[in-house]
Each structure stands twice: as C-alpha cells, then as structure tokens.
C-alpha cells in the first residue's frame, strides 16, 4: 500500500513542484531586468573601488615607499633630486602584474597615490599595459647623472 501511496504522492509532488517553479519564474518575468548596458552606459563604480591608480605628481616626494610596499614589484620610479627640488622622471605601473591590492597607497607619506574609479585600460600589446603616470620631461646631462631609478 505504501508503494501505491508513494507513487501517487510522487506524481502529485512532481506537478506541484513544477507549478511552484513556474510561479517563481513568472515573478521574475515581470521584475526589472538587472542588465547593465555596459559599452553604451558606463556603470558607476563604488567610492572605494580599486581601479587604475590616480597619481598626483606634484605631491610626490620620490621616497620609493610605494614601490617597496608592492608585493609584486610592479611600480618603477625615477627621481632626480637637486637640493630641495624633486623631479619625478618616471612613475610606471605594470598592470600585467598589479593585483589592485591597495598596499602601495597606504604607506605613502605624501598621500600622492590612490586607487581610482577607472577600469577600462585594456590593451592589445604587452607594452600597452605599462602605464606611465609621470609627465614626460627632458633631462639635462647633469640631471641624467643624478637620476636614480628604483624598483624596490
């Protein structure tokens, strides 16, 4: 007798669960789609989003702390010091390596590097993934001698 009862209850449950599932999908049919129309409408990133870095060159003191803090060695800095004057000749970040961990921004004493909202910097070449943040400068012979390029 139990076998017969299980059979009929199985048939009933099969139909019932299908109906429950269909009611759920019907509800979704009339709910608002969550699709982001990405290339047409850019999504707003959250305030603490860790995107491509923002570098404020005039604040930078060329102390290499960020490059030292980087766990994957993706920051390369070139500095020319002449007395009190500091010239940042190079501030490259290799985004093939960067893992957006935010560890470079924390130790900076001058608060000159931050994680930004930007995320669209894909490139077709390996070179293209190395972003140069420092404004390009022409150096004199003397300056070239004192230029110190450091990775770590």
């Amino acid at each position: 007798m139990t076998a017969v009862r299980t059979y009929f209850s199985d048939v009933f449950m099969g139909l019932w669960t299908a109906l429950v599932g269909m009611s759920i999908t019907l509800r979704y049919l009339f709910s608002k789609p969550v699709t982001e129309m990405y290339p047409d409408v850019k999504p707003r990133t959250p305030t603490r989003y860790r995107g491509i870095h923002v570098f404020e060159e005039e604040k930078c003191i060329g102390c290499y702390v960020c490059a030292k803090a980087c766990p994957v060695d993706c920051i390369e800095i070139g500095v020319v010091r002449k007395g009190k004057e500091i010239k940042i000749t190079k501030f490259d970040i290799d985004y093939q390596k960067c893992m957006f961990c935010d560890l470079c921004c924390e130790p900076c004493p001058a608060h000159c590097i931050h994680m930004g909202p930007e995320f669209e910097k894909a490139s077709f070449t390996r070179k293209g993934t190395i972003l140069q943040f420092a404004t390009p400068k022409t150096l004199t012979e003397e300056e070239k001698k004192v230029e110190k390029v450091a990775r770590k």
């Binding site: 999908t25 979704y28 049919l29 789609p33 699709t35």
Partner: peptide, 13 residues
C-alpha cells in the same frame, strides 16, 4: 526575449 526576461536579463537589444 522571454528567456532573457525570465532570468532578469533583457535578451537581444
């Protein structure tokens, strides 16, 4: 189109 909307998507647009 319906498949999209059943899954909270838009389908072809």
């Amino acid at each position: 189109k319906l498949a999209g909307h059943f899954q909270c998507r838009l389908g072809p647009v």
